[in-house]
Amino acid sequence: MDAQRLLARRSFTELHARARAQALLDPGSFRELIDPFERLASPWLPRQGIVTQADDGLVVARGLLDGNPAVVLAIEGAFQGGSMGEVSAAKIAGSLELAAEDNRQGIPTRAAIVFETGGVRLQEANLGLAGIAEIQAAIVDLRRYQPVAGIVAGPVGCYGGMSIAAGLCSYLLVTREARLGLNGPAVIEQEAGIAEFDSRDRATIWGLSGGEQRYRSGLADRYVEDDAAQIRQALLVCMRAGRPGRCRSERHDAFLPPLSQADGARPAEPAEVIAAFGEELRA
């Protein structure tokens, strides 16, 4: 990116969740549900001496995409690592369930989820995990009617149970800054040792789980520059394309053979992963 373009663009990754939702929806159509002034914050964090955020780090935005009814669910990565607690997870799951109900009533509501999350909020344990399971079930329900697009922009990335939720989306959009993985680098190093994964080696982290790698190995469908207008445009293109013939999770047969041939005795190299999987796995 040259200096002129760098100055002209509006970074998406630098925006907070509410501004991200506004940037994605048609101009002027943003309307927030369960906003911060309803103070539906986590009931569990204060009991553990942790300051809450009034919206529990989750923005539910109704609005339009290309003039069609839509809901955007944007996770605030700066609050508690974008972790999914009882309230934030229920806000996502409940919104997706209502969007599916809209479709059964003839209203073609589609959904976009901005994933910026380390996964479950450890302080809320099973309630967060149950919430993530509900999100996953709701994605699978809604994607039968309309596309559910996931966006991983960074810098937090998308980890844990929410990486599975991202994998269930009809389309997954990533930036270069994005990271996507089941376990985060520090967890892998802690459990398997530094020889397996050095969590301080940024080149390795992005080389194996970064947005570009996930796109080239077919685990993401669109690779987008960190620019709010371009990300919105890529989202609209996916929505116009409609539901993919088969979602990634319905094509698991294609992913299993390369996985079974992988040599688990040594750490994987980025180039091997790209060669083993590949762009034919994209939606």
């Binding site: 907070h16 969740a17 911060p36 002034f37 300051v51 809450t52 955020q53 009034a54 780090g57 605030e76 700066a78 609050f79 508690q80």
Partner: peptide, 14 residues
């Protein structure tokens, strides 16, 4: 009105 988020070194004002 609302400003800020509860991020490290930051605050939320309602």
């Amino acid at each position: 009105a609302l400003a800020g988020v509860v991020a490290s070194g930051d605050l939320e004002v309602l």
